[in-house]
């Protein structure tokens, strides 16, 4: 777990855990009743074309908040990183995939879905990322790889 920050700073595709709420009682109360209670997982889904508001997923549904409202919510980001930023040669586990159904289907064909263990074998900073999943080698384009989020594999799960 990293140090706390506010929800408006949670990048698209990243997940966080709600830690607390600030702001006036009225607005805090509304955010609470919509499900932003401490301990809840939130994911940033996308940012509107003009940069505001932002769409989030919380408690299994989507809702949008303006940046000013999102700034009232303190979150702790979940320790995970995009496959493009992951270290080479370490044991990793896929924590989640940020993308539409098409992307997820293509990834599933390459056996990449949440919970799957993999190792990044090669990354030359440009061009595709090479990974090995269940002893099979795959190459992922950088765009695709940047949407696959992984955590260090500590052998559980």
């Amino acid at each position: 777990m990293r140090e706390p920050m506010t929800l408006d700073n949670l990048a698209v595709g990243r997940r966080g855990i709600v830690r607390g709420l600030q702001g006036q009682s009225g607005i805090r109360r509304r955010l609470l009743s919509m499900g932003f209670v401490p301990g809840t997982e939130v994911e940033t889904i996308r940012v509107a074309p003009m940069g505001d508001p932002i769409a989030f997923e919380v408690k299994g549904y989507n809702l949008s908040l303006r940046r000013e409202e999102a700034a009232f919510i303190e979150v702790e980001t979940i320790e995970e990183f995009a496959l493009t930023e992951a270290p080479v040669g370490k044991a990793l586990v896929v924590s989640h995939v940020h993308g539409g159904w098409g992307l997820r289907r293509r990834l599933r064909r390459a056996m990449i879905e949440p919970g799957v263990r993999l190792v990044k074998t090669r990354d030359n900073w440009v061009g595709p990322v090479a990974i090995s999943v269940a002893d099979q080698m795959h190459q992922l384009g950088r765009g695709m790889a940047s949407r696959v989020f992984v955590q260090a594999d500590n052998g559980q799960s």
Partner: peptide, 10 residues
């Protein structure tokens, strides 16, 4: 009156 945008995207 503050009217925040806390809007569900059903």
């Amino acid at each position: 009156e503050v009217a925040p945008l806390i809007m569900e995207l059903p």
